[in-house]
Design a protein around this nucleic acid. Structure first.
Lengths: 133, 133
DNA sequence: CAGTATCCCGACGGATACTG
DNA sequence: CAGTATCCGTCGGGATACTG
């Protein structure tokens, strides 16, 4: 079945099998958000429960305040996490996953797991490609 | 069990539960590669089998030649896809997933599936956040 | 403690033109 | 057909300094 395009069966699922094609733009958009440099890590870190700003800054480690604040706000606006501020001194703010965000952690964990499992393999390929030609 | 930190149990798994912390840098690096704007889409599109350059350009649609070439080369260097050129006229080049890359499609498909399932939900949150305050 | 504001640079990434 | 090369604007994202 080389192409199978033009058939009625293929019409509904678009060119990419997995992607409805009319949603391609959207998928890209969300994928960009969710798959950006920090979102996944933050989501993964929130798996265990609420974390404070500083905790996240430490756990994700490499992240700058700017990116942490920014990403947290994005995630919050997308309804993936909730922000709870306690009016005390010193101020305390906790971030937790929403049910929506919780639906993502399984996938995120799988992805991170996969990366952990294969990073050396990828590294090897990358090196060979860089060295050889 | 507010924090439970300091316990011996927590020590081995680092701050983030899912991430060994010493691998955090790596994870970030690969995650960046895999989670970039186009890689996931290309991988998803290659699920069914080999595709040619032009096919990919059509399937991923929004992508420019520059980014398609670039991303393909990245993926190839990471050992996620293979490039096969046939010395004919007109030239034909086919891209396929390696076993390594194939290990990713399940996760990628899950992620795309999740996004498809919840994009309206996310959209709603995003709109409310933008409108309300 | 939990951010915001500003500066700034490099990479991302689109458009266009050209090549084997 | 399957790219590469160049130009160029936009944005991600780090460093630093400041605020409630």
């Amino acid at each position: 079945m080389e192409h199978a395009e033009g058939s009625a069966a293929a019409a509904s699922r678009g060119p990419c099998a997995a992607i409805p094609a009319d949603q391609m733009g959207f998928v890209r958009q969300i994928l960009d958000r969710v798959g950006d440099k920090w979102s996944m890590l933050i989501i993964a870190c929130l798996e265990d429960g609420a974390l404070r700003y500083t905790d996240l800054q430490r756990d994700v480690s490499g992240i700058s305040q700017r990116m942490l604040s920014h990403t947290l706000r994005q995630l919050q606006q997308d309804g993936l996490i909730t922000r709870t501020a306690y009016a005390e001194v010193p101020p305390r703010v906790e971030y937790t996953l929403t049910p929506l965000g919780r639906g993502l952690i399984d996938i995120v964990k799988q992805l991170i797991g996969w990366v952990s499992d294969h990073h050396d393999e990828i590294r090897a390929h990358r090196d060979r490609a860089a060295a050889g030609s």
